[in-house]
Design a protein around this nucleic acid. Sequence first.
DNA 1: AAGAGCCGCAACCGCCCCCAA
DNA 2: GTTGGGGGCGGTTGCGGCTCT
Length: 386
Amino acid sequence: MRRSQCCEKVGLKKGPWTPEEDQKLLAYIEEHGIGSWRALPAKAGLQRCGKSCRLRWTNYLRPDIKRGKFSLQEEQTIIQLHALLGNRWSAIATHLPKRTDNEIKNYWNTHLKKRLTRMGIDPMTHKPKNDSQSSGDGNSKDTANLSHMAQWESARLEAEARLVRECKLVSTNPIQPQLNSPAHPAQLIRNKNLAQLALPPCLDVLKVWQGVWSKSTSGSMFPLAGDDLESPTSTLNCSENALAIQTQNVEFNESTVTTLLHDFAKSSPTSCNGGFIKEVCEQMPELKERSDIDTMGLQDMTYNSTESAWVVDSFRSGNENMPLSNIMAGFTDTLAYNYCDDHNSLINLDNGDKSSSGDFEDCNYKNYWNNMLNLVNVWSSGSHVF
DNA sequence: AAGAGCCGCAACCGCCCCCAA
DNA sequence: GTTGGGGGCGGTTGCGGCTCT
């Protein structure tokens, strides 16, 4: 079934906007705000379709738009985020205040893409175009490491973005999420009204990416337990390292689990259910004994793509040194922040207390963030990434 | 000076997802 | 459970301005 085009109505204008049209649109929005875009043109006296009005507003007329040349910092941010997120311009735009996705997209296509190409870097993969030239020196390893970290960082970015949205949602609409409840946060955040909510301060993942990782106060490439991970603009106080899931290197049949995970990965799921976890647990009886992983609880749930990515990406990236327990711990953390309701949430996952009471503001997602970092820290200490 | 080619960017197009009816 | 509208998103187009010859 073909949907009728919004501009199919005879008489609707297309093409460049005139200053008069801009003025009409601005005046209307200033007075009435943004309601239904479809109804807006008629009310504002514009011979335009609603979609055209929306684009004109979001990409040009909005008062919080910064125009002009991109700074070096912004360029670096775009390149790094593109390496992590790909052509997800709206996601990239959320980390560049006052820049629109359209502007970033244009800048990428007209400037950055060409510049990277000239530098011999594939703008899509962010890898040197001729890998064979770099094999033999450390470049290929560095590239692999960067790619590897990018996968983790990408998953983390997604989780973070979700965290921010959920936090905002729950703080304004105190739904009490229950385990196994239909009101799964991942579903709640799909409420498009969320997109209209102002985001809290950026979690500043780029500073984590660019600074904290390389300037850990311990001198390690990765932040260690005693490091203050607090980001200048982060809403998370990472120095409160009150609780971390204790990851332990358990023995396990790696080939079996790898096969399971690869089979899982091959299916390219957008979601999965606890049956997968059950399978893993059956192959790894020692997992059931782990006090820090609520394997039974995990089996009862449905996981979204971000959660699944924790597992899949870990093995897709080919790090055989990463104990499955770490992956599971990260998986558990990701789930934990979804459902935690107080500062004991992660512990509660352990003792089976999944009651949800209290406000999300009290939710200790600081620990979630810390655990994310700790997870990578533990991981890095066991391998020689970077 | 003028035409051709290139470049940058605003705007459009088409697809997709979400949600209310 | 289905359908259709609203809106978001990424890819593409086309025009105006700039540079080159």
